[in-house]
Design a binder for these strands. Sequence first.
DNA 1: ATGGCGGCTCGCAGCCGA
Length: 275
Amino acid sequence: MKLATWNVNSITARLPHLQRWLAGARPDVLALQELKCPVEKFPAQAIAELGYTAAVHGQKTYNGVALLVRAGLPWREVARGVPEFDDEQARLVVAELDEPGSEAPLIVASAYFPNGQAVGSDKFAYKLGWIDALASWIERERLAERPFVLMGDFNIAPAPEDTHPDWPQDGILASPPERAAFARLLSLGLVDAFRRFPQPPQSYSWWDYRQGAFRRNLGLRIDHILVSPAVLPRLRACTIDVEPRRWERPSDHAPVVLELAPMEQFNAMAQRAII
DNA sequence: ATGGCGGCTCGCAGCCGA
């Protein structure tokens, strides 16, 4: 079982990259952010031809999220937008997957956290309010006590090692209130899958288009996959695939990929552990 | 300090992203 998240910065502009990357990586689930596309213009046909079905929460120009699910894997959409949070902006879509051999469904979410623009701005307040509503929903639904994977563009670099050395640690994407909001998600029991494995130093998932930031590796790690404890024993690897960032006319984000042991193998292991 | 790049739009300039 392979899951991934990718902020594509316009699904229309990035469709060739999406096709190329999906054909090579073949994840079972891909969470997309920044579609910048209303649902009616979502390229469902091209996605279907690649062997994927999709849950889409879109809007014109800005935001927009989707979950692509490999054809043959049964799923249903369970939320579009943060439940009980009044929001004009399309930033969350949630689905349940029925994995073969699994008793409980795997809940997967594609989230596009607000950017926040500048610390102290109106958009910053909206960002913190949005994350608060997300965390409250996770708490209410007790998602941390169920098999749950929250993936997306969090627009938060959780720790100093998640920013290049010159990035201001009190500025947007790294500020104490944003890191506290991220920490609240962890305090619910969710775990940053990337940090469960040894990683190369200065691993980032986003690089500014300007000033040759990618070439100089002046990036941030702001795209994340958080998993609930129920999923933890299945973790096999979590990596950032920087390859598509090298392609022509790339997204400014790279995909983050999570590999889980297949449920059958996990059941067999659990069986042996009991014996 | 600014803008730099790239995507978007009732588009040729301005907004937004991070």
